[in-house]
Design a protein around this nucleic acid. Structure first.
Lengths: 346, 346
DNA sequence: ATAAGTAGCGAAAACGTTTTCGTGTTGAAA
DNA sequence: TTTCAACACGAAAACGTTTTCGCTACTTAT
């Protein structure tokens, strides 16, 4: 087992100083052709690689990006990571991942762990619990310490930082408008409680679309699911709620769901009730994940382009990190949503 | 913007030495109660946290685990990461993720980037291209440099390291046996080319089950899909291949697919051909992902317990890292698979 | 022959810690 | 009064780099 070799060891072996070795390896003109050759040959032979940690300490930058997301077993978030990783790698950065599991304290702890020198900046999406408690001190503190943050998807306006979002309202509006144009008269929305910002905005888009077409919204058509239901155990009660939605609205002919799971579950209930899609009821979801693509019928959905979100977030962060001038000017990038039409709509 | 404070700054402010500050913060008895109080109060006020990079350099360990996986937008792999992260975090480790995208060179580059001091050890699953080329020098080299590796799922015997696998053959055997016991007489397998080890072992399990029940395997019932097809673009040709499989075997009444996507696609084709599940044909997949759970009919599948695999891998690695004695004794842990029965079988 | 310039190299500082080893001061014992 | 221990603290090394500065010896020009 030959341990990693250091400059010091090379220096000792070749009977030169550490500085000489360092310079020789970096092709400094200070060093004679002779010694340069000798050192480089030796280094190559022993497969020398500079120690990243030492470099990080010296340069006071780690070339590493910290990601904090609520969960990773989730198509959208893993797409985003994939996008971040792609551009990070291309620009010589590594990516270190922390999971908050939607918990405020885990989010705080994870950020503190990483903020102490391990990374140069954060890309994150806020945990639900944090959104609920509206306690954002950990974000402001890290920013105050000079560590940049880029937020994506779940963001809050209070915090001054770069953001990458989709226009949730616009995306929802597109979807609901599509349903209306397809002839739906009684369109329901299955959404989350309002403190989840994306749920709020998508609901807003739903209402805007209705208004555009002079349709009066009906309270009974708006189902705000307690988001605990997303944890798969509570799927049953979600189903029940949706079933009640159908029973209360016999003429229901269109559903807009703010996420894949709600949409898929709605399809399941509809099928159970003997309804055909898209003939009897048309359904559109949000987030183009693997479920939408393989559902029966395949699900029309609003794609958020998670990969692109990740790429953009990484670009913003790295640009910020590598910017010379220290002006604090923050940007909010909106990634266009796209309505992907499949078989669940006419 | 108040930058992170260092020992040196505290020392200067309080007019003591750096060593005194360090000792005071670590409650050394060398330091008088008085100074200790003073230092700790000051440190707390300025929210002092030791710099991780400096600690890493000093201790020559980073408390960080490197993960290299072929892709992250994949239910199984993200489950594994989630498991790794859980125990890593509990034991004070961070997790840094590299993606190989199934490419040999990206795998090598990523490992080299991380091996130079950034991490203490690797947890990885081998890229397909690497398996194909059978070039494992980067693994042996990192191990030789004293950096431990734990492989999971896609492993190779040549490399001496800890491994966490599922008994693919056994899992497949369970599934196929189930189909036989459920009355299937003509059972097909949809699998990958042999160089993907999991594909090979699952095929082997299929054959073993048949043999157990004295059923002769038929070549026409074994569909080895070129794994390029997994990249979602090639879904169409996958469908065609499966359709041909049905046409060539009119009495086909059971299908075992070595992954979710193959299973779902088989269901799609069956439905197109007017076959009912589970009445006309029963289907079992491998990997219990989100697709299986929400397919129609819901898909019976072999669960690999990705989370548990990740947890176990992390335990093995950290135990190895924190072991005092340097004995090189490696373990291969087999995580039991479980047949999750749903509606696609009788 | 002397001054000046240059080529080639090494010493040392710096990044932020922890830890070992001194060292000076105090108080008590001899 | 001398000696010794205990106490409280500081200096310095170490982790592995990069970089600035200084030094020596040689070459060239005057």
């Amino acid at each position: 087992m030959k341990k990693k070799i250091t400059l010091k060891q090379i220096a000792r072996e070749l009977d030169v100083s550490i500085s000489t070795v360092s310079k020789a390896l970096r092709n400094s003109i200070e060093i004679s052709e002779d010694t340069r050759q000798k050192v480089q040959a030796f280094a190559k032979l022993y497969n020398y690689r500079p120690n990243n940690i030492a470099l990080s300490l010296k340069n006071r930058k780690t070339k590493t990006i910290g990601i904090i997301i609520p969960e990773i077993v989730h198509h959208f978030f893993s797409k985003v990571i994939s996008g971040i990783e792609a551009v990070a790698n291309k620009r010589g950065y590594n990516v270190i991942v922390g999971l908050s599991n939607e918990s405020f304290s885990k989010e705080v702890i994870n950020m503190e762990m990483l903020a102490n020198g391990s990374i140069d900046g954060f890309i994150l999406s806020i945990a639900k619990e944090t959104l609920q408690q509206q306690d954002y001190h950990h974000f402001t503190e890290t920013i105050n310490q000079g560590m940049p943050i880029v937020m994506f998807d779940r963001v809050v306006n209070e915090i001054k930082c770069d953001k990458v979002i989709v226009d949730d309202a616009e995306g929802a509006k597109k979807a609901v408008s599509k349903l209306i144009e397809n002839g739906c008269k009684h369109i329901a929305i299955i959404t989350t409680k309002d403190y989840v910002s994306v749920g709020k905005y998508r609901t807003q888009g739903y209402l805007e679309a209705l208004e555009n077409y002079k349709i009066n919204p009906k309270a009974s058509l708006i189902l705000k699911v307690d988001d605990e239901l997303l944890s798969e155990d509570h799927l049953d009660s979600l189903e029940k709620e949706i079933e009640i939605l159908f029973q209360k609205n016999k003429k229901l002919d269109g559903i807009f769901a703010v996420n894949e799971l709600y949409a898929i579950t709605a399809m399941k209930v509809a099928r159970k009730l003997g309804l055909n899609m898209p003939e009897d009821v048309q359904i559109i979801g949000f987030t183009d994940g693997v479920l939408s693509k393989h559902a029966v019928p395949t699900l029309t959905t609003v794609s958020q382009h998670g990969q692109k979100i990740g790429e953009k977030a990484a670009e913003l962060l790295i640009n910020n990190l590598e910017r010379e001038d220290e002006e604090d000017t923050y940007e909010t990038v909106v990634i266009e949503t796209e309505l992907i039409e499949r078989a669940s709509t006419k």
